[in-house]
Nucleic acid binder design. Structure first.
Lengths: 243, 243
DNA sequence: CGTACGTTTGATCTTTCTCAATAATGGTGG
DNA sequence: CCACCATTATTGAGAAAGATCAAACGTACG
């Protein structure tokens, strides 16, 4: 659970006791393949999964069968906070890559959250940050054009990974296919491809396989109308400094 | 605060003690005009406002000046739960109509949430339901066409109002201009107008001024690809029964 | 009664989607 | 190590949904 704790503490400091309590939470590790489900729509999970390794995403399917991705989970994220106090999952969570999940019994985590104010506060904050990201996604998909959407998504990813020390200098491994990128931005994979080539042609990014590097971080942020406020990352703007 | 309590209890039952504690929260009433701000982007509210009367909406503006509405608040909603544990508001909240706000001191509500498990659970659930609605909005704006988006929004509104006993039979007062409808669905007001006329022409709704009635509730739900699961409304499907 | 705001309508233009085909790429069994 | 298959990425041409621009029409309200 140490990744989870690090993740929590990136948001709020925990007291020694609270930290111990979280670290002592019982859990069971599970190795997951890409595409496997962590949560299914309509199910009632008895566990709250914490992503130890690998990436996952939240997803819903419309009546017509179109898919929309509403969130990408990175290592350290608690995947089921959204469900822990609700009884029916309104969306599915699926692995993006291979990875490892730590399953924590729902009841144990619930109790910790409700009885330890420090933990409660921390978990609530994590939930609220997720909601903030969702709001930004509504804006992204509702009011930005294709190029802005993609650029914005890339920026968000870069910052979130960087904060956890998962991004190499000037770039990162993007664990999504162009089709998944399309499902996250409300576009077509065909169009995503054209936009990516456009960003590359303009020198904002370079790509080799799934690896994306920022040719011009400042310009990419401008192209994506990106400001990191909504991520509620405490502390300085390290990524900006690095460029 | 009784509206707030009712709102909470629509989601989770509260113990007598917890209910008392919430009812005894200090607050100050304020009358608000349409368009006035309850929260500004970037601000740090010292109060948590509860909407006693009237409607409000959450909103963000892109760099290019386009506006996106991410949520509509109805009477009983706590407007600042999203901000109560975060220090900078990532979005603005504005009145849609005239109304009354009960300002509760942030610290008092925080304490209640953290020290009373029953209240904590209730507030967390309210927050999670809001997140669930946000996810559905991402889907709505990302993967549905204009007609579906509008129909979906109307259905959501109808159900949320109905649950609180604010919807008259077979219809309700829609407190939004077509421009605001457009900002909520990622469309243009011109196009919203055409879609509304289309829905009307097909007999799914009738309009007189801001009043919308459902000509065919079932068909409207189908047209909007609407299922109420994501609203996490406990209990039966009264609205469906009424038709 | 005039002004401001909201609605409605028409004509034209863009962005993005669709359909379709071709090229890479990675992994697999032999 | 190589041939083969299944994904994924790339490219082109035509179609469509929705945006934009512009104007007229209502209606509330000071």
């Amino acid at each position: 659970m140490s990744g989870f704790v690090r993740d929590i503490q990136a948001q709020v400091p925990l007291s020694v006791d609270d930290r111990e309590a979280v670290l002592n939470l019982p859990f069971r590790l599970r190795r997951m393949d890409p595409g496997s489900y962590l949560v299914r729509e309509g199910s009632l999970p008895a566990q709250c999964g914490v992503l130890v390794e690998g990436f996952a995403f939240r997803q819903k399917t419309t009546g017509e069968g179109a898919r929309q991705i509403m969130a990408v989970c990175v290592p350290g994220d608690a995947v089921d906070l959204q469900n822990i106090f609700l009884d029916i999952s309104d969306h599915a969570v699926q692995m993006l890559t291979q990875g490892v999940i730590a399953d924590v019994p729902r009841a144990a985590l619930q109790e910790l959250v409700l009885t330890r104010p420090g933990v409660g506060r921390a978990i609530i904050q994590l939930t609220l940050v997720e909601a903030s990201i969702l709001r930004e996604w509504v804006v992204n998909v509702g009011r930005r054009d294709a190029r802005e959407r993609i650029a914005h998504l890339l920026c968000e990813f870069a910052v979130r990974l960087e904060v956890r020390g998962l991004a190499a200098d000037h770039g990162f491994e993007l664990p999504m296919t162009q089709e998944q990128l399309a499902d996250a931005t409300g576009l077509t994979s065909v169009h995503v491809n054209r936009v990516l080539k456009g960003l590359e042609a303009d020198g904002l990014i370079t790509r080799q396989r799934r690896h994306v590097s920022f040719g011009d971080w400042r310009a990419l942020q401008d192209a994506g109308d990106f400001t990191r406020t909504y991520l509620h990352v405490p502390g300085v703007d390290e990524l900006d400094h690095a460029f």
